[in-house]
Amino acid sequence: MLATTMRRAKAVILYMLRTPKLLLGMALLASLLLLSAVGPLFVDIDDSRSISVPSNQPPSAKYPLGTTSGGRDMLAVLIVGTPQTLRMGLLAGIVGVTLGASLGLIAGYYGGRIDMVISTATDTMLTIPPLAILLVVAASVRTMSVDNMAIIIALLSWMFTARTIRAQVLSLREQPYVHMARLAGLRDIRIIFEEIMPNILPIAAASFVGATSGAVLAGIGLEVLGLGPQRTPTLGMTIYWAQLYSALIRGLWWWWLPPIIVLIVLFVGLFLVSAAMDEFVNPRLRRQG
């Protein structure tokens, strides 16, 4: 058992090393983690609060990325804001995929009326643009925190996972070894966890990357509209404040450009990882450009 696991893990690692997309994507994401982990050692992160440094300073030796009109040190803002954005995406990804995978498993495994209810709910929710509901919720909730936002986004983004997993479970359910397990008198819960779960993990992992990226996208969208956490200097809120104080036409490029660059690195990193994982799950996509 342990030996096979080791062999599989080795095969996965070897595969990863042969896939430049995955390596590059991982490297981009790792650079952001590094920024948020090592940054506080070199920069005083208290300077990310407003009125802690002189305002509107262009980049200099003292403030490498300049300061905002509100008197925040932009480098400190990035160091504080990046992990907040990552946290929001990961939390929303975990909650959304867990929810979606559970619903997909239940619908696919039990079928019948349960499946009909879950599938109809999934299809219905899929046609509702999440932004519309998010807007109404975010506009009603007076104080938004990073975690609240993640949970709200997760509750609106489980549908794709549920649909993919359900389709997969539908075919897995008819596999000979599942029939065997059922004949052997195994309980449903053990069949689901021991026979079916291991086979949907790669798909769940691929959906997780997609869900995380989607959650960050939705979260940043809300933040740019000014509906994000008011107190935490997240990347999206920084762009919102920069927009609100016309940083663009005042030529304060160091206020809005750095968060955009961090976000682009994040999105491209997630995109590359997710593309590589899709190829891993669906080998037909490999070697075509």
């Binding site: 990226s213 996208l217 940043i220 969208g221 740019v224 762009i239 663009l248 036409i249 030529g251 490029w253 809005w256 450009l257 955009i260 976000l263 682009i264 999105f267 491209v268 997630l270 995109f271 590359l272």
Partner: peptide, 21 residues
């Protein structure tokens, strides 16, 4: 394809700055 991972409004801000400002 890589560019499609970037939200359009973020690219929009960069474009405005370059071409308009």
């Amino acid at each position: 394809m890589v560019l499609s991972a970037v939200p359009y409004y973020l690219l929009g801000l960069i474009l405005v700055y370059l071409f308009a400002f």
